[in-house]
């Protein structure tokens, strides 16, 4: 049995697909690509797939991850190409590597996000960012299965900055957010931003996860979570 780690992107209009939607599409794509999946035992065998920390429905992502087990040794690059071809456009397989020891989930410590505010002046966004970063706490409330919960978003935010976009009617927010429990989602932070200033974009902002992985405190950057696997495969 071989275990593979897969990085994929969710782009364009397929950002509206949920993790469950992706799961169904993936199982079918694995069949079409003739990947020799390993199945669970029992009356209703399921392919052995584990998903890690999916981005919320409606957000695009350049860095989603899952693991699959296969019953015979496969060529990771061939799997990448075959799986990418078998998935709909917009669900794009970026990397496939053989898993080295160590849990993938443990390496996903933080995410880098990019948020495009349409019809928003850069100065307004900058003001909001400054106010947010100055705050000691930025609590929001959200509905959970167990009921309404109020939690702080500020402590999860490692960095945050505003930047100009190519299109002058837009402004860009970039941030690195630590994975916590309960998880602080980009929309939580947007809610908090709106609370500290009067920032009110007329259309919903476009959110993209650029990366997720180990958090390097020195640079406050997010590193490649598959680096260890690649190093092991290359040796």
């Amino acid at each position: 049995m071989q275990k593979l780690r897969v990085k994929y992107a969710r782009r364009g209009r397929l950002r509206f697909s949920s993790t469950r939607d992706f799961g169904r599409a993936l199982e079918r794509a694995l069949r079409r690509a003739e990947v020799p999946m390993a199945f669970s035992a029992g009356f209703h065998p399921h392919p052995k797939i584990s998903y890690a920390n999916g981005a919320p429905t409606g957000t695009a992502s350049e860095a989603e991850y899952f693991e699959i087990s296969v019953t015979e040794r496969v060529d990771a690059d061939a799997v990448r190409a075959a799986l990418d071809a078998a998935l709909p456009d917009g669900l794009d397989v970026l990397e496939v590597v053989e898993a080295a020891p160590g849990a993938l989930a443990d390496r996903l410590e933080a995410s880098a996000w990019e948020v495009v505010f349409r019809q928003t002046a850069l100065a307004d966004l900058e003001a909001a960012v400054d106010a947010y970063l100055d705050a000691a706490e930025a609590p929001v409330s959200r509905m959970f299965k167990t009921g309404m919960k109020t939690f702080d978003t500020r402590s999860a935010v490692v960095t945050m900055s505003a930047a100009a976009a190519a299109d002058p009617s837009c402004a860009i927010l970039r941030m690195v957010v630590r994975h916590t429990t309960p998880s602080v989602r980009p929309d939580d932070i947007l809610t908090a931003l709106r609370a500290v200033t009067a920032l009110a974009p007329p259309v919903p902002p476009l959110v993209t996860r650029l990366a997720q992985g180990p958090l390097h405190d020195a640079t406050a950057g997010v590193a490649d979570p598959l680096a260890a696997d690649k190093a092991a495969a290359g040796s």
Partner: peptide, 22 residues
């Protein structure tokens, strides 16, 4: 689609409106 997209953020199960099926 450009006029539809902002509405998709506000409705239930937006995936049903985007097409792109295999």
């Amino acid at each position: 689609f450009p006029t539809l997209e902002p509405l998709l953020e506000q409705v239930s199960k937006p995936i049903q409106y985007v097409g792109g099926e295999l």
